[in-house]
Amino acid sequence: MKRHKRDMNQRAYERGYQAGLTRKSSELCPHSDGLHRENWLMGWREGRTDQWDGLNGATACHKLSGF
């Protein structure tokens, strides 16, 4: 069975979320493309918000799996 490629925008969001959750700087965004960068930063902001609200890695993984 062939594997479908992942949605790169969703992947950028998830990677940004993980970076925000682990308190990394938004300056570390690896994307220069506008849409991928926007999704990464949106995920980063959400991750930072969740980190401030007290979510840890295990709780956050459940949140990401719902997307």
Score class of each variant (00 low, 15 high):
L21M: 09
M42I: 02
Y13S: 07
Y17L: 06
K63Y: 13
S25Q: 00
Y13E: 05
W52R: 10
Q18D: 12
R45K: 00
H36G: 08
Q51C: 03
G57L: 05
R11T: 13
A60T: 01
R37N: 06
E38Q: 06
K24T: 01
Y13G: 03
R11S: 14
K63W: 13
S26A: 14
N56F: 02
A58R: 09
E38G: 03
H31M: 02
K63G: 08
Q10K: 15
N39L: 14
T22G: 03
R48M: 09
L55H: 04
E27M: 01
L28P: 03
N56I: 02
G54W: 00
H31Y: 15
G34H: 09
G34C: 06
H62I: 07
G54P: 12
D7A: 08
A19F: 07
W44G: 06
L41I: 14
C61D: 11
T59Y: 06
R6G: 04
G16M: 04
H4A: 13
R6T: 01
G66A: 14
W44F: 07
S32W: 11
M42H: 14
L64T: 10
K5N: 08
Q10C: 04
D33L: 05
G57W: 01
S32C: 11
L55Q: 05
E27Q: 05
R37G: 04
R45P: 00
T59W: 05
S32E: 15
C61S: 13
M1C: 11
R11H: 15
M8C: 09
H31D: 11
S65A: 13
A19T: 02
S32Q: 09
W40I: 02
D7Y: 12
R15I: 05
G43P: 01
H62Q: 04
H36P: 00
E27R: 05
C61Q: 11
D50P: 02
G47H: 02
M8A: 15
S26C: 07
E14Y: 01
N56L: 09
T59F: 05
D53H: 15
L64W: 03
R45F: 00
G54S: 08
T59E: 13
N56M: 10
W40F: 09
N9C: 12
D33T: 10
T59P: 00
P30C: 09
S65G: 09
K5F: 14
G34R: 08
Y17E: 06
E38C: 04
R6S: 04
T22R: 03
G66R: 15
L55W: 03
C29Y: 06
N39I: 02
R11F: 12
H36E: 10
G54K: 04
D7V: 10
L64M: 06
E27C: 08
G43N: 02
Q51R: 03
A60Y: 03
H4S: 15
C61I: 06
R23I: 07
